Computed example of a mutant assay.
Amino acid sequence: MKVDQLSQVRQEIRSGRWQRPTAGLTPGRVQANLVVLPKRLAYDFLLFCVRNPKPCPLIEVTDPGSPVPRKTAPGADLRTDVPRYRIYRHGEWVKEVSDIRPYWTEDAVAFLLGCSFTFESILLEQNIPVRHIEEEKNVPMYRTAIPCEPAGAFQGNLVVSMRPLASRDVIRSIEITSRYPQVHGAPVHVGDPQEIGINDLSRPDYGDAVTVRPGETPVFWACGVTPQAVAAASRPEWMITHAPGHMMITDMKQEDLVGING
């Protein structure tokens, strides 16, 4: 399904009919990663986001107990409007579900972090191919050896998403994505994956492997799945996130981000 009618897409997700990755859906809308934590850990995670804006570009924090992102999607419900969620207990991924209402608590605080799926439609408009969309796969994501700046209870290493590009498209992709820091901005690494601790592109830690053609350069962007790797390292009592590649689609438009970031 490739449609730009937000209400139709959200209803498909809310009803459980769409449980696949959201890359390519609602072009022009801002997509977001989701992290939900108990209130007692919310300040520490907020500080983690402030200290690590590349993987965790914060676009909204909800009031404790409220599942409504009043700033970015006032008609949405964060408990039902993400295609797939992951439940973590003490750092272990224990379950993947399509509805987190049974797990929501009165002190739950939700964080929405900008997602790089947002700028993919701009790359496509500029005739820069996006391989995982071409191949109808989830974007490949990898844990790196790059440590994040710790904050309170949270510490761990950066996760990146990868898109292979022809040499002629690398500089253009950097120029384009650097205009959107609230959805990860410019890449964090270009070229040899081993330089950032990735040994095998054919074995992503999250998502699907994609074809890297001869002469193409792997380009790596900071990824909002980083908090899930941080959960494994920090072991909070519980954390709820989106399943990698299955984003919250907000009401915000790409041009809203340009206005915010100049």
Score class of each variant (00 low, 15 high):
117 F>A: 03
129 P>M: 06
47 L>Q: 12
191 G>Q: 06
49 C>K: 06
154 F>R: 09
48 F>Q: 04
95 K>Y: 07
113 L>C: 01
167 S>P: 03
164 P>A: 15
40 R>S: 10
114 G>D: 04
186 A>D: 06
109 V>E: 03
170 V>Y: 12
196 I>N: 01
236 P>W: 11
9 V>C: 03
178 S>L: 07
228 Q>G: 02
145 A>G: 13
29 R>M: 10
110 A>F: 05
60 E>K: 09
180 Y>W: 12
175 E>R: 13
83 P>Q: 14
141 M>P: 02
114 G>T: 03
238 W>R: 02
78 L>S: 04
203 R>T: 11
21 P>D: 10
197 G>V: 04
245 G>I: 05
234 S>K: 04
189 H>R: 06
169 D>Y: 15
148 C>I: 08
54 K>H: 11
95 K>A: 14
174 I>H: 01
128 I>N: 06
240 I>S: 01
85 Y>V: 08
61 V>W: 11
42 A>Y: 04
198 I>M: 01
143 R>I: 10
35 V>I: 15
107 D>K: 03
192 D>W: 05
168 R>M: 11
139 V>G: 00
135 E>C: 01
64 P>M: 12
89 R>P: 01
179 R>I: 05
75 G>W: 11
114 G>M: 03
79 R>S: 07
166 A>P: 00
218 P>I: 07
65 G>Q: 05
89 R>I: 13
159 V>F: 09
226 T>V: 06
54 K>M: 12
209 A>F: 07
130 V>D: 05
184 H>A: 09
150 P>K: 14
201 L>C: 02
86 R>T: 11
249 I>Q: 04
238 W>Q: 02
119 F>H: 04
8 Q>R: 14
198 I>W: 02
63 D>Y: 10
211 T>M: 10
182 Q>F: 13
260 I>Y: 11
181 P>I: 13
229 A>L: 07
261 N>F: 13
131 R>W: 03
189 H>F: 13
54 K>R: 15
162 M>T: 02
22 T>H: 08
234 S>I: 08
230 V>Y: 05
242 H>K: 03
30 V>F: 11
31 Q>K: 14
183 V>Y: 09
48 F>W: 14
49 C>V: 05
107 D>I: 05
67 P>V: 09
120 E>W: 02
133 I>S: 00
37 L>F: 07
51 R>D: 06
44 D>N: 05
69 P>I: 01
161 S>T: 15
83 P>Y: 15
102 P>T: 12
228 Q>V: 05
96 E>R: 12
17 R>C: 06
93 W>M: 13
202 S>R: 12
93 W>C: 12
89 R>V: 12
17 R>H: 14
24 G>Q: 08
151 A>M: 11
236 P>N: 05
202 S>F: 00
157 N>D: 15
48 F>N: 03
159 V>H: 04
203 R>W: 02
261 N>L: 13
82 V>L: 09
72 T>C: 14
163 R>W: 09
26 T>P: 00
247 M>E: 08
17 R>V: 12
234 S>W: 10
186 A>P: 01
17 R>Q: 15
207 G>C: 06
65 G>L: 10
250 T>S: 14
105 T>D: 12
147 P>T: 07
144 T>I: 09
220 F>P: 00
36 V>N: 01
252 M>D: 04
38 P>S: 06
65 G>E: 07
115 C>E: 02
256 D>L: 08
141 M>E: 05
243 A>I: 00
227 P>H: 11
101 R>A: 15
20 R>M: 14
